[in-house]
């Protein structure tokens, strides 16, 4: 029963949502909406599970006297501090009545001072790693690599003022070779064709996997235990 009931739940939920597409009337339409809200509620518990797991891992590192335990303490302090400030709406309207992220709340300060700069800088750091990846990718060793290089170069230059100044002097009949125009054409024609083929391939894969899950053919998410 530990495996049969979950398979039955997956079948019922998946089938109901597929049926809701073909019979968009009550009760299926409302069922579709309610399941979406239920999913969001369970997702909040998944966040709680993630937070619990994070605490468990870092408390474990501290108790085992791991060499990096000082950083685990930083994670725990950051986690618990943000959690308490957000849940109790410190600095906002009296009690719990205000907006949790309104201007003036401590949670908004944590968001602006910690969350935004850390997240944005982490992602901007990737610009440097992408630059080193470009060095490797931009070596035209094969015909395919050359095509990739040319497409990437035109897109990169075509979105900057340099692209405009390089070819703005071209006469009207050759304007299609103006780098910003060429960049737009690559994005909206050959790139579109490639992306569309990838999307169709991915869609076929997802449809097949979803059917296997709903029909109980794919069961790996249940784990190995009986």
């Amino acid at each position: 029963m530990r495996r049969e009931i979950p398979l039955f739940i997956t079948f019922i939920i998946g089938t109901a949502l597929v049926v809701a597409l073909f019979i968009p009337h009550e009760p299926f339409r409302e069922l579709d909406h309610q399941f979406s809200v239920w999913f969001d509620i369970i997702a909040v518990f998944a966040f709680i599970l993630g937070g619990g797991n994070l605490l468990r891992v870092h408390v474990d590192r501290i108790t085992r006297k791991h060499p990096d335990r000082i950083y685990s303490m930083v994670t725990i302090v950051g986690f618990l501090g943000t959690l308490l400030i957000g849940l109790f709406k410190f600095g906002g309207d009296p009690g719990l009545t205000g907006n949790y992220i309104a201007q003036g709340t401590w949670f908004k300060v944590v968001y602006d001072a910690f969350f935004v700069p850390l997240g944005a800088t982490m992602f901007s750091l990737l610009a440097f790693f992408v630059a080193s990846a470009s060095y490797r990718a931009f070596r035209a060793k094969t015909r395919e690599a050359t095509i990739l290089l040319i497409a990437a170069f035109i897109i990169l230059v075509g979105r900057t003022p340099l692209g405009y100044y390089l070819t703005f002097w071209l006469p009207e009949p050759l304007q299609f070779l103006h780098i910003p125009n060429l960049s737009s054409w690559i994005m909206s024609v050959p790139n579109l064709a490639g992306q569309r083929a990838i999307m169709i391939g991915i869609a076929l894969g997802i449809i097949a996997t979803s059917l296997k899950l709903i029909l109980g053919i794919e069961r790996s998410y249940l784990g190995q235990e009986k």
Binding site: G14, L17, S210
Partner: peptide
């Protein structure tokens, strides 16, 4: 496994119809 089954069923049901239509 029960909530996981719900999450998987929901994701499979919505993705099947969504990807079939839009992608």
């Amino acid at each position: 496994r029960w909530p996981m089954a719900f999450i998987i069923g929901y994701a499979a049901g919505t993705n099947l119809t969504r990807y079939l239509q839009s992608d």
